[in-house]
């Protein structure tokens, strides 16, 4: 259903564009949290929807292209990452957890942005927002959301959503 909305120039169809974000996730979780992830099969959705209990989101602007990158974590996923990163065991989403989500979002976007700008894009750095709970974003445009799952060793999954508005 989302495929007909994609235009030939949509960067979500560019493997290098998508790889920049995947590599950003792998590098960030590995270096900052000593956590190995397994990349799942990406899918395309027509409407963004958060999939976990807490999410980090950052806006991306390049010329006429606007987009968002978000990372949605289940509690199980983010608790494992924070434990690996800070040595803290958490049982609820507190300030420490939301700070970690914001920081990871910042680093993953920063890593991807550097790669993308070397490819000719000119994305700017932005400060991410962290959101808790279930939510949707309604859009009135021809965008689509690429959803990339990342699996952790404890069986949990977190998702990177990249939405591009042409």
């Amino acid at each position: 259903m989302g495929a007909e909305n994609l235009q030939p120039v949509n960067p979500l169809l560019d493997k290098r564009f998508v790889s920049a974000f995947v590599d950003g996730v792998i590098k960030t979780t590995s270096l900052m949290a000593s956590t190995q992830v397994v990349v799942g099969k990406p899918t395309v959705e027509t409407q963004f929807q958060a999939k976990g209990d807490v999410a980090g989101m950052v806006g991306m602007v390049f010329g006429q292209m606007k987009g968002t990158m978000s990372i949605s974590f289940s509690k199980e996923a983010i608790f494992q990452i924070v434990e690996n990163m800070l040595g803290e065991k958490n049982t609820e989403i507190n300030a420490s957890v939301t700070d970690a989500v914001g920081e990871m979002t910042n680093q993953i976007y920063g890593t991807a942005k550097t790669t993308l700008n070397q490819m000719g894009y000119a994305f700017e750095m932005a400060i991410p927002s962290v959101i808790q709970g279930t939510f949707t974003i309604s859009k009135h445009h021809s965008g689509a959301t690429l959803v990339i799952p990342f699996n952790l060793s404890n069986g949990s999954t977190f998702f990177v959503d990249i939405t591009v508005i042409m």
């Binding site: 960030t28 590995s30 270096l31 900052m32 910042n106």
Partner: peptide, 8 residues
């Protein structure tokens, strides 16, 4: 540059 590890 983030991300980095302790050794860096």
């Amino acid at each position: 540059v983030k991300p980095f590890n302790a050794q860096t």
